[in-house]
Amino acid sequence: MNTHIIKAVILGFTILISCQDSTKNQTKTPSNHTNSKVTDTLIMETFTDKNGQTLELSFNNNKNIVTISLNGETAILQAENAASGFWYKNEQYELRGKGTNIDLKKHDQLIFTHVDSMVTATITNKQGQTLNMVFNNTSNTAKVYLDGGDEIQLNGQTPGSGIWYKNEEYELRGKGEHLELTKNDSVVFKN
């Protein structure tokens, strides 16, 4: 998956399920985790919690509903006005979330939760440059900001050791406290 798709996924997922106006023409974009599928009116997502339990969601933004499937039970929840993120509920279930972090309650008891594993770090080199980094270990992606500049989305690679993230222009490699960010094979940050 390239960085443009990942960026669109996160933004699209949040916008699509937060939107309450069913008359708008919306872009349907799958998220960046397991088993996403998009049809004309549905966004289908599969989440896995830390215990290996699987929750399937089918968002119908035209009808402002989500169909949930967990442990052989299926239910339809209606969209509610959320201050931030998304919120769906019926008499039994309540689904809340923001981005790919979600909680599902049944009769006010939390029965499923999915939270991406995130790590943040900031490093400054001898030249005074600052590199802010946000690593999403669940999706194996990173967002980096050089000197507070634009967000750079990177995808995790398989290094021999240390870390390695890249996109079409940028590459972040490092081991321990030593990091190097390159743009088109030219070093733009090194500590």
Score class of each variant (00 low, 15 high):
M1D: 01
G128W: 05
T130I: 05
T100P: 08
F189P: 04
L16P: 00
R96Q: 12
T48F: 00
T100N: 14
D49R: 03
G99N: 12
L77K: 04
I152N: 12
G149R: 05
L55H: 01
L57Q: 10
L95Y: 09
L70N: 06
Q129L: 11
S58H: 07
Y88E: 01
T74G: 01
D49L: 02
I76Q: 07
D116L: 11
V38G: 12
E180D: 02
D150K: 13
E180T: 13
A79Q: 12
L11C: 06
L70H: 08
S18Y: 04
L172D: 09
G148W: 06
G162F: 01
L70V: 06
S31K: 02
T182H: 01
T41L: 04
T29R: 07
T158I: 14
N155E: 12
H4D: 13
F189K: 05
T14P: 05
T67I: 15
L16W: 00
H114M: 15
L104E: 13
T138N: 11
M44V: 11
Y165N: 12
R173N: 11
T27A: 03
F189W: 06
K37F: 14
S31D: 10
T67K: 15
K98V: 04
F189E: 04
M133Y: 05
A83G: 00
T113L: 08
P30A: 12
I76S: 03
N60Y: 04
F47L: 05
K183H: 08
L154A: 10
V119Q: 13
Y170P: 01
A142W: 00
I111E: 09
M118R: 14
T23W: 03
N155G: 13
C19Y: 07
K24M: 11
I68Y: 05
I65H: 07
K63V: 05
L146I: 06
T41R: 04
L42P: 06
R173Y: 08
D49K: 03
Y165P: 11
A83Y: 00
L55F: 00
G160Q: 10
L104Q: 13
A79T: 02
E180G: 04
G156R: 01
E56H: 08
M44E: 15
I68P: 07
N2G: 06
G97C: 07
L131G: 09
Q153S: 11
K50M: 08
N140V: 01
A83C: 00
I111V: 15
M133D: 05
N140P: 00
T130W: 00
L70I: 12
N35L: 11
G149C: 05
P159Y: 08
N35H: 12
K143P: 00
Q109E: 14
D185E: 13
F13R: 09
T124S: 15
S161L: 07
Q129S: 14
Q26P: 01
A75N: 03
L146V: 07
T27R: 01
N25G: 09
N35T: 11
W164T: 04
N71H: 03
N184R: 03
E171M: 03
K98H: 04
M1A: 02
V187R: 08
A79P: 01
